Amino acid sequence: MLSVERFEIAGRSVWIAVLWRERIQGITFALDEEQFERNIERVAAFLKRRGVKVDLTQKASDYPSLVRDVVIGRIDNSEVLPELSFEGVTPFERRVYEWLTKNVKRGNVITYGSLAGALGTSPRAVGGAMKRNPYPIVVPCHRVVARDGIGYYTPRLDEKVFLLEIEGVKRWTNSKLT
């Protein structure tokens, strides 16, 4: 199923979509409607390539509001982990996503290198996992930054900046943005 809602957050329209069956299979969001449609197609295609059965029939659920509540800080990211299906993610990706979600809290960031060190892997492998994250916002890939700037393992840098700004992380959002 696909649940879609638009919210006003920090003076911006934010579209949130959640693909789900028994649990959340994927999440996407955007700051403009045109990009949002592409994002839904992208996450659905990714999940299908990973062998996940995706149904894009629209059906209302509480999931978009749950994701919104994470964005605005009403609930902690780790509280939503049990709602994620982890279908189609590798054991490595799941380990990265769970560690990040449990250990890097709202208003904080971690570098790709520090996260890699905590997990005994390489910064490039962590960056790849962040880029493939099917659960953005809940699994806070936006909180993973380069040591010298915001980091570029994201398809939409403006959305990463938006999420960090909402969380009050100014140092990184003022760093290299081009």
Score class of each variant (00 low, 15 high):
Phe36His: 11
Ala116Gln: 04
Tyr152Asn: 14
Val80Met: 10
Trp172Phe: 15
Val104Ala: 00
Glu167Asn: 06
Thr154Pro: 13
Phe46Trp: 05
Gly73Ser: 07
Leu119Ser: 11
Gln35Ile: 12
Thr111His: 09
Ala146Ser: 13
Asp55Thr: 05
Tyr97His: 06
Ser3Gly: 08
Leu19Glu: 01
Pro123Arg: 01
Arg147Lys: 12
Phe86Cys: 10
Thr121Ala: 12
Leu84Thr: 11
Leu84Glu: 05
Lys105Gly: 14
Lys102Ser: 02
Ala30Thr: 06
Trp99Gln: 05
Arg106Met: 11
Ser3Pro: 11
Val169Asn: 03
Gly107His: 06
Gly73Lys: 02
Asn108Phe: 12
Val139Asp: 02
Gly88Trp: 00
Arg23Ile: 00
Val89Lys: 02
Leu163Asn: 06
Ser114Gln: 15
Gly149Ile: 10
Asp158Thr: 09
Pro140His: 02
Pro140Phe: 02
Asn174Val: 08
Phe7Gly: 08
Leu177Asp: 01
Thr90Gln: 11
Asn103Ile: 04
Pro82Trp: 02
Val126Asn: 02
Gly26Tyr: 01
Gln25Trp: 04
Glu5Trp: 08
Arg49Ser: 13
Arg74Ile: 07
Tyr135Arg: 01
Val71Leu: 09
Arg132Pro: 00
Gly107Lys: 04
Thr178Val: 13
Val138Ala: 09
Thr111Val: 11
Gln25Thr: 13
Lys53Ser: 15
Ala10Glu: 12
Gly128Met: 08
Phe86His: 05
Asp158Lys: 13
Gln25Glu: 15
Glu165Tyr: 13
Gly73Pro: 06
Lys59Met: 14
Val14Lys: 01
Phe29Asn: 05
Tyr112Cys: 04
Val80Gln: 03
Phe162Arg: 06
Ile16Asp: 00
Leu2Cys: 06
Gly11Ala: 09
Val71Phe: 03
Glu87Trp: 04
Arg74Leu: 09
Phe92Ala: 08
